[in-house]
Design a protein around this nucleic acid. Structure first.
Length: 487
RNA sequence: GGUCCCAUCGACUAACGGUUAGGUCACCAGCCUUUCACGCUGGCAGUAGGGGUUCGAAUCCCCUUGGGAUCACCA
């Protein structure tokens, strides 16, 4: 059997990180097995439709590097891939179930259903559609049912769940799951507006699109018995199921908006590399080996297997994501990083620097930050002259004698044959030794004059990237201010 | 509450009956040093509890406890 899987989001907003992981696992599984990965939009609920949500979803998915073989954009042999364009189908299949006795018409109003649930709650039983007393084709009889149709009474189609016996199915991740038929509700398949519910549309489409493996979040586990019943009722072969463990908040509840960002686009916006984010997400609930953390998409594909997916939920804790991002920051090509950094620099107000310079700055600072986006803040002095000088740092390292100590050194720098870090280092070293001092006696004052800050990359490397003219200018500005007593 | 799922360091996880229970992040200490980092070395820290099965259990079974998901004409 050829592998065909699908990611089937609802267009209700942005792509959730849990959704991204589900999509990713589907993608990895498909690619690993040389199968097809399909994107299907499940928009059967008109009330939850959000403008541009579909575009948003697709752009987040593509940012992450997840490509689909068949999708609304791309088309394919099993389209359309948007459920709202497939409505006729669902009605037809609902009809088929009515005819073979696996589904039935019901005419209850919302009020009647509420009343039923209230009664059941009072009686202390689980709320469940009671087809022996409610208004449906069984209690009403053929004649009355016919009359209601003639009167255009609103109706729904419900799944006829066997009252006795067990429903069982096997899940690749969880093994055998068994539920009693009496515990399964007569799910509405076709709503009174004629639209299908998720359950019907999902099963029909998965069958028609020849989906071999249904890989989805654990929240779907409780409704899987209904889906299994539907496959059986149609006489269709069931796909293999794999219910993924949930992504969790710190308090172990299902990952939600309340406790932090859950939109994939937010993480892209925060400056995380897609490579790091995908790497991180992939390792939440699955691990190919014990002694490795960094994997490229190709490697994830190569190693992926559903059998190694965990059963327990995983807390989405971004601490490790930060570290992972820093690993990519150090490993990625500097020119490539410069291209990615350019817009971030522009946004920070540091425009007009060429990629060559940006690459050098990144090379200088990449080991000191986790995210590229931190560079304009951490290393602002690489793009602008210091606006202020760290007071505590001045106090600690600028003595009364420092000014006279530094001035001759600046002269030596002016006459330096070049400004490579080795050269300035050697000049400084020789000077310092001639004064009977140590390197650090002068390094801190230099850092202060050049950057205004107490932290940064290696001093001579920093000076090399900034260049001779810029450095001399900064020395002079500082010395001038110092002499005027402004600092 | 009913049903279902789950349970290894604070977090992510390894172990598929035999290991001093391993790795990574975070945290702590030391080394390195030109500040901050990186790096290196070391440390802290875990099988929820109780019963079985077995020569031997984190691993298999049962119970308890705890957590979660789900119970709509949402998906």
């Amino acid at each position: 059997m050829s592998v065909r899987v699908r990611f089937a989001p609802s267009p209700t907003g942005y792509l959730h990180v849990g959704g991204l992981r589900t999509a990713l696992y589907n993608y990895l599984f498909a690619r690993h097995h040389g199968g097809k990965c399909i994107l299907r939009i499940e928009d059967t609920d008109r009330t939850r439709f959000v403008e541009n949500a579909q575009e948003n979803l697709i752009s987040s998915l593509s940012w992450a590097g997840i490509e689909f073989d068949e999708s609304p954009d791309k088309g394919g042999d099993f389209g359309p891939y948007i459920q709202s364009e497939r409505f006729d189908l669902y009605r037809k299949y609902a009809q088929e179930l009515i005819e073979n006795g696996n589904a039935y018409y019901a005419f209850d109003t919302a009020e009647e259903l509420d009343a039923m649930r209230e009664r059941q709650q009072k009686a202390g039983v689980a709320p469940k559609y009671d087809r022996s007393v409610m208004r449906n084709q069984y209690t009403l009889g053929p004649e009355e049912t016919e009359n209601l149709f003639k009167a255009n009474a609103p109706f729904v189609v419900r799944l006829k769940v066997p009252l006795t016996g067990e429903i069982r199915f096997s899940d690749i991740i969880r093994g055998e799951v068994v539920v009693n038929g009496r515990d399964v509700d007569d799910q509405i398949l076709l709503k009174s507006d004629g639209f299908p519910t998720y359950h019907l549309a999902n099963v029909v489409d998965d069958h028609l699109m020849q989906i071999s493996h249904v890989i989805r979040g654990e929240e779907w586990l409780p409704s899987t018995p209904k889906h299994v019943l539907l496959y059986d009722a149609f006489g269709w072969e069931r796909p293999k199921f794999a219910h993924l463990p949930l992504l969790l908040n710190k308090d172990k509840t299902k990952l939600s908006k309340r406790q932090g960002s859950v939109a994939v686009e937010d993480y892209a916006g925060k400056g995380y590399f897609k490579e790091a984010f995908v790497n991180f997400i992939a390792l939440l609930g699955w691990n190919p080996t014990a002694d490795r953390e960094i994997f490229s998409m190709q490697e994830l594909i190569e190693f992926f297997s559903l059998e190694k997916v965990n059963k327990a939920g995983a807390v989405f804790d971004t601490q490790k994501l930060d570290w992972m991002n820093s690993q990519y920051l150090r490993a990625l090509d500097l020119n490539d990083l410069a291209v990615r950094f350019k817009p971030l620099a522009d946004e920070a107000g540091f425009s007009g620097f060429d990629n060559d310079y940006l690459a050098k700055v990144i090379g200088l600072l990449r080991e000191r930050v986790n995210l590229l986006i931190e560079i304009p803040v951490f290393g602002n002095y690489m793009f602008e002259k210091p606006k202020e000088y760290d007071e505590a740092y001045v106090l600690k390292h600028w003595k009364d004698t420092t000014l006279e100590l530094v001035k001759p050194l600046v002269e030596l720098f002016k006459n330096a044959p070049n400004f490579e870090h080795q050269t300035t280092h050697d000049i400084t070293m020789a000077y310092v030794e001639s004064q009977g001092l140590k390197l650090k006696d002068v390094i801190h004052p230099l850092r202060l004059m050049i950057t205004g800050k107490s932290v940064g990359a290696g001093m001579f490397e920093t000076m090399e990237v900034l260049g001779k003219d810029e450095c001399i200018e900064r020395f002079n500005i500082f010395i001038d201010k110092k002499e005027k007593g402004e600092i």
